[in-house]
């Protein structure tokens, strides 16, 4: 996927107002099946997979022993005893190695990395659902034909993600473009997800930060029983003083925020931006940063250092962008 086709702003607004298509074939697809699949996955993932009926999907995270994030992913229950995991491209090998190493010895679970076999397209925007028949309900998955249709995305808009055999990917892409979806690149994918405060692994998620720090508690089922990383989360939850990932905007029109910019409060450095940009929908500069609990309340006054100049900033409620339909 290129950074842009017609321009990031143009592509971004097409997704917000009509429809765009992203080639996300780089993402990974794992299939986990067998009588032990559900119980085993629930020991590796933070959300409660037992809540999924066949045809449902959920956002979830896979943690290391320290409670840090290995990857965030969506898991779909495609059959009573089969699950599809869609994972980040840069983490395919690490995820596969981690999962394989933790497979139960009794043979009750089969793990298969099918990442090379599937092309994937994200078709997103208010007009996207009309571009394909037989869509599953929100967060759901539909299998059975030559393609897998997932009613999910990374933009905050309605739409779907279509998995097709690798050789069929470009024909599907063309088909959606012909139907009116604008080709979109990595740049718009980033601005769209940032307006929604969806985390990006490698920026806002890391092996050294827990999902509680990343403000993803709704996707962590502490009461489902043991899972890898839970002990750290339980301790953090009891203590309550951990850093949190917050949404920050510049108060006035200014430069786009970028990851690695230093965040100040009362002249003292308090954190570093993990993501940043300028919001094409809203017209102001936005970012996210892990800040100490004392500086995470909405309305907290901050400054961001951009090339030596401090710009007034403020903690705001997530997400930045709200659909006004």
């Amino acid at each position: 996927m290129p950074v842009q086709y017609s321009g990031i702003t143009d592509e971004h607004l097409a997704v917000r107002n009509h429809a765009g298509v992203f080639d996300i074939s780089h993402m990974g697809e794992f299939f986990v099946s067998g009588p032990g699949a559900m119980v085993w996955l629930n020991t590796l993932l933070t959300n409660d997979i037992s809540l999924l009926k066949t045809g449902d999907g959920q956002y979830t995270l896979m943690l290391n022993e320290r409670g840090g994030v290995i990857d965030d992913l969506i898991v779909y229950r495609t059959e009573p005893e089969q699950f599809l995991l869609v994972v980040n491209a840069s983490k395919i090998e690490e995820n596969a190695a981690w999962m394989t190493a933790h497979l139960p010895a009794d043979g009750s679970v089969v793990f298969e990395d099918q990442s090379r076999m599937w092309a994937a397209l994200a078709v997103q925007g208010p007009a996207a659902p009309a571009l394909l028949d037989h869509l599953p309900p929100r967060n759901g998955v539909k299998t059975g034909g030559s393609v897998i249709i997932c009613r999910t995305g990374y933009t905050g808009e309605d739409g779907f993600e279509l998995l097709a055999p690798a050789e069929a990917g470009s024909a599907w892409f063309e088909r959606f473009v012909q139907a009116g979806a604008k080709p979109c690149g990595l740049g718009a994918r980033d601005t769209l997800r940032l307006e929604m405060c969806y985390p990006l692994n490698g920026n806002d998620l890391s092996p050294d930060r827990t999902p509680l720090e990343a403000s993803l508690a709704p996707f962590v089922a502490m009461n489902k029983g043991h899972f890898i990383g839970r002990d750290t989360l339980a301790a953090q939850k009891a203590d309550g003083t951990h850093d949190r990932l917050v949404a920050i905007r510049l108060v006035e029109k200014g430069p786009p925020l970028r990851s690695h910019y230093t965040v100040f409060a009362d002249g003292q450095p308090v954190g570093t931006l993990s993501s940043g940009g300028i919001s094409p929908s809203l017209g102001f500069s936005i970012g996210m940063a892990f800040l100490p609990a004392s500086h995470t309340a909405v309305g907290t006054k901050l400054e961001i250092d951009v090339r030596g100049k401090h710009h007034a900033a403020v903690v705001v409620k997530k997400p930045f962008y709200h659909k006004t339909a």
Partner: peptide
């Protein structure tokens, strides 16, 4: 000078 696009500085 610095010129910033959506993409980069």
């Amino acid at each position: 000078a610095v010129i910033e696009s959506v993409k980069a500085a």
